[in-house]
Computed example of a mutant assay.
Amino acid sequence: MSSPPANPKTPAWPPKSAPRLFVEQELSLGMHVHIEGTQAHYLGKVMRVSEQGTVILCDNLTGEWACLVTEISKRSITLTAHERLREREDVPDFWLCPALLKKDRFDMVLEKASELGARAIRPVVTRRCVADKLNLVRAKTITIEAAEQCARTALPELHEPQKLDAFMRDWPKDRILYFADEARNAAPAAIAFASHMGPAALLIGPEGGFDDAERAAIRAHPQAHPISLGPRILRGETAAIAAMAIWMAQAGDWNEREFAK
């Protein structure tokens, strides 16, 4: 299918202004999707969709679908999958591993990591963290909303926070681990990232940085590579966002070279 049913009021297909949502069920052509709860409120009361209007749905499995509004009731909206617009994207194999920060600052990390294209977000708890817990339901909502806003078709994997010693002990042997080391001389991030095209991850410390024992343990790990983010002391959220942007520019999908899958 390349166009919706004949309707003189139908805008250009698919309309660029159509609202976007992620749904849990796997989508297929002609499938009826019943939207309820907060998503139905968003479509009906905030976006004010009407019958035969268009909503873009993503399922994190098959990609992005243009769906027609076929029924609107008081508490639910029914959509019909009309056309698949894009397959699920294959994002670069990059994990962001940020130490937990204060809630509002970590919210920013979650949002921007999703927008920048992280494949996974793996929070870490270190000795100087001001927080040691994460509301995963709330955190997932932030990543989903960010993915909807920036037109991602693949959600980042979101993991439970893990203490640094267990995080390092269980680290996979086939994945390089960059870490921002503000205490010693290290390779500039752009140079380090450009030299490695395989699976990668980035470890960022908390507000107070890693303590000496943690830094020594990280440096001793065979997969760890220290990097520098310049001469200034950066906040945790700034370091995470800046370093990930550099990685995407050097080795990720901002680069024309084919990235490792």
Rank of each mutant, 00 (worst) to 15 (best):
M1T: 13
S3E: 11
S3Q: 12
P4G: 05
N7I: 09
P8T: 10
K9I: 03
P11D: 13
K16E: 15
F22Y: 14
V23C: 11
L27E: 01
S28E: 15
L29Q: 14
G37F: 14
A40C: 11
A40N: 11
G44F: 03
G44I: 08
M47Q: 14
R48E: 12
V49M: 02
E51S: 05
E51G: 00
V55S: 02
C58S: 15
D59H: 05
T62F: 04
A66P: 05
C67R: 03
V69I: 06
V69T: 06
I72P: 02
I72Q: 06
R75I: 06
I77A: 01
T78W: 07
R84Q: 15
R86D: 08
R86V: 01
E89K: 10
E89H: 12
A99P: 00
K102F: 02
R105F: 07
R105D: 12
R105E: 10
M108C: 03
V109K: 00
V109C: 00
K112G: 00
K112L: 11
A113Y: 00
S114M: 10
L116E: 05
L116R: 05
R122L: 15
R122V: 12
P123C: 12
T126E: 09
R127D: 14
R128F: 15
R138A: 06
A139S: 13
K140S: 07
E148R: 12
C150P: 01
L155N: 11
L155A: 10
H159E: 14
Q162A: 08
K163A: 10
A166L: 12
F167I: 11
M168P: 00
P172M: 05
R175C: 11
L177S: 01
F179L: 13
I191E: 14
I191D: 14
A192H: 03
A192L: 00
A192S: 12
A192V: 05
A194Q: 12
S195D: 14
H196Y: 13
H196M: 02
G198F: 05
L203K: 03
G205A: 11
G208D: 13
G208R: 12
A213M: 05
A213W: 07
A217M: 10
I218A: 10
R219T: 08
H221K: 10
Q223G: 03
H225A: 08
I227T: 09
L229D: 03
G230N: 07
R232N: 04
T238K: 04
A243W: 08
A249Y: 06
A249H: 13
Q250C: 12
A251K: 04
G252S: 03
G252H: 01
N255S: 11
R257E: 10
E258M: 07
K261N: 11
